[in-house]
Computed example of a mutant assay.
Amino acid sequence: MSEGKLVLDGLHKTYPGLPVLDGVAFDVAPGEFVSVIGPSGCGKSTLFDVIAGLERPDAGRVIVDGEDTTGRVEPFAYMPQRDLLFPWRTVLDNTTLGLEVAGMSKKAARERARPLFAPFGLAGFETARPHELSGGMRQRAALLRTVVQDRAVLLLDEPFGALDSLTRTDMQTWLEGVRAGYGWTVLLITHDIREAVFLSDRVVVLAPRPTYVQQEVLVDLPRPRTVEMITSARFAAVEEELLAALRGSGLRGSGRKPPRAD
């Protein structure tokens, strides 16, 4: 797998009568976990579609490890909000689906996926069907299906949004623990500020549509993160900074973009 440095270089996207992306630009370093938050309808999902090569931008580039990958899907593994597990396939065969679509034989795909079942908390469920799994286990299976493709960058679009509060917290804690051992480069869309703080090295705050990067907030908290940290003053301070950014910090409605660093 390549290093996974992602650069978004001034992405613009307009649909007929609807400008959505207005020069979105930021970087994600190899092994970094970056979350994207912003007002509802600001264009987060459109941004992910452009990054993942599902939509082409009107202007700007997506660059991975120095190579222009605009409009290409190969560098990315994309996990949507719904797990999209096929009920007629076993859990193992669901996790290998992306590899099979890419041309790998079923036997080779299974051999690659099996070693991940234990660290993903799914050992013993290889031959189960999706309906036999809890909500958290289904999401772990969906994430396994994503990471087993061994792509440079993981794109996670509200992966825990459909889970109940307790299961969501458990999944956040599990993801925080497991990602440290793999060095994934991750870009996460979330509406949950606390989730963004808990999981991220940095949080990108998007402005209302047509969107641009309004602010980037460094999450200067030690790893591994624990649930107990959520009640700390440092955690609360980052949350408050993000809330202030979402409120616009005086920029929303001003008609002006924040100054860019030269």
Results as ranks from 00 to 15, higher is better:
Ser134Ile: 14
Gly135Leu: 11
Gly135Phe: 03
Gly135Ile: 10
Gly136Ile: 11
Met137Thr: 13
Arg138Tyr: 02
Gln139Gly: 06
Arg140Gly: 06
Arg140Ile: 11
Ala141Trp: 04
Ala141His: 04
Ala141Gln: 06
Ala141Tyr: 04
Ala141Phe: 03
Ala142Val: 12
Ala142Ile: 09
Leu143Ser: 00
Leu143Thr: 00
Leu143Trp: 00
Leu144Asp: 12
Leu144Ile: 12
Arg145Thr: 08
Arg145Lys: 06
Arg145Val: 04
Thr146Pro: 10
Thr146Val: 09
Thr146Ala: 15
Thr146Gly: 10
Thr146His: 09
Val147Asp: 02
Val147Ile: 15
Val148Arg: 04
Val148Leu: 09
Val148Ile: 15
Val148Ser: 09
Gln149Val: 10
Gln149His: 01
Asp150Thr: 00
Arg151Met: 06
Arg151Lys: 15
Arg151Ile: 09
Ala152Asn: 11
Val153Ser: 01
Leu154Glu: 03
Leu155Glu: 03
Leu155Ala: 04
Leu155Ile: 03
Leu155Phe: 01
Leu156Tyr: 03
Leu156Asp: 05
Leu156Ile: 09
Leu156Ala: 02
Glu158Asp: 09
Glu158Gly: 00
Glu158Pro: 06
Pro159Gly: 08
Pro159Leu: 03
Pro159Asp: 08
Phe160Leu: 08
Phe160Pro: 03
Gly161Thr: 09
Gly161Val: 06
Gly161Tyr: 05
Ala162Asp: 10
Asp164Phe: 02
Ser165Val: 15
Leu166Phe: 15
